[in-house]
Lab assay of single mutants.
Amino acid sequence: AEKTGIVNVSSSLNVREGASTSSKVIGSLSGNTKVTIVGEEGAFYKIEYKGSHSYVAKEYIKDIKDE
């Protein structure tokens, strides 16, 4: 089941290729951006990003809701 969340950062949140802080950064999301969460892996959520799937750190996503 998909969930949505809100990016909870003051500046921007790195979007990564994989579920690791050493993964390549492929983009960023600004605070209060709504994201669609399709899964989770460790400390990361797998999200829909620009037509494919990428990862963001869970600690920076708030207001998780089931869609």
Rank of each mutant, 00 (worst) to 15 (best):
E48I: 15
S10A: 13
A1E: 10
E2M: 15
V7F: 03
I26P: 02
S11K: 09
K50Q: 13
I47G: 00
S12P: 09
N32L: 09
I6S: 05
V35K: 00
Y45V: 03
K65W: 10
V7T: 07
T33H: 06
E40K: 04
T36Q: 08
T33K: 06
E59A: 12
F44G: 00
K34C: 11
S23K: 03
E2N: 15
S28T: 14
N8S: 12
L13W: 03
E41N: 07
S22Y: 09
N32D: 09
S22L: 10
E67K: 11
G18D: 09
S11H: 14
S20Y: 08
Y49P: 00
T33Q: 10
G42W: 03
A57E: 15
K3L: 10
T4H: 11
S28M: 11
T36D: 04
L29K: 00
G18E: 13
D63G: 08
E40G: 04
A19V: 05
N8D: 10
Y60V: 04
Y45T: 01
V35C: 04
G5Y: 06
L13Y: 03
G51I: 02
S20A: 07
S11P: 10
G39E: 04
K3R: 14
E2T: 15
Y45A: 01
E40M: 07
A1I: 14
H53W: 11
I6C: 10
V56N: 00
V9M: 07
G27I: 03
E41F: 08
I6W: 13
I6D: 02
I37C: 02
K34M: 12
A1W: 14
I37G: 00
H53P: 07
N8C: 15
I47T: 01
L13E: 03
G42P: 02
K24F: 06
L29P: 00
Y45I: 03
K65I: 12
T21H: 15
E17P: 02
Y55C: 02
A1H: 14
S10E: 13
E40V: 07
E40D: 07
G51A: 05
E67V: 14
Y49D: 02
V38F: 06
T4C: 12
D66K: 08
S30M: 14
K24H: 07
V9C: 15
K34F: 09
L29R: 00
Y49H: 05
K46Q: 07
V56R: 00
V15N: 01
E67C: 14
I61K: 00
H53T: 09
G5E: 03
E17W: 05
G39Q: 04
K34I: 14
E67Q: 13
F44V: 01
K50R: 11
Y45S: 01
I64S: 07
S11L: 09
I26N: 04
Y55P: 00
I61P: 00
V9H: 12
K3F: 11
V56P: 00
V7W: 02
K46S: 04
T4Q: 10
S20G: 05
I47K: 00
R16D: 01
V9E: 07
G5K: 04
V7S: 04
S20W: 05
K58N: 02
E2F: 15
K34A: 07
T36P: 02
E40R: 03
D66R: 06
F44A: 02
G42E: 06
I47L: 02
G5P: 02
S23A: 13
H53R: 05
I64Y: 09
S54D: 02
V25I: 14
G18M: 10
E48N: 10
S30E: 14
G5D: 02
H53M: 08
L29I: 11
D66L: 13
I6P: 02
G39D: 07
K62I: 15
N14D: 15
K50N: 13
L13S: 04
Y60M: 07
V35R: 00
K62V: 15
A57G: 09
Y55D: 00
R16V: 08
I64R: 04
K65L: 11
T4G: 05
N32A: 08
N14K: 12
V7E: 02
E41M: 08
V38M: 07
S20I: 04
Y45G: 00
K50I: 06
S10Y: 09
D66C: 14
S20R: 04
V25R: 03
A43I: 09
I26E: 02
V25E: 03
K24G: 06
R16L: 15
I64K: 06
K46W: 04
G42L: 05
T21S: 13
A1L: 14
V56T: 01
S30C: 14
F44K: 00
Y60K: 06
K62E: 09
T21R: 08
K65Q: 12
E59Q: 11
S23D: 06
R16M: 15
N14W: 13
N32R: 07
N32T: 06
V7G: 03
G39S: 06
V38H: 05
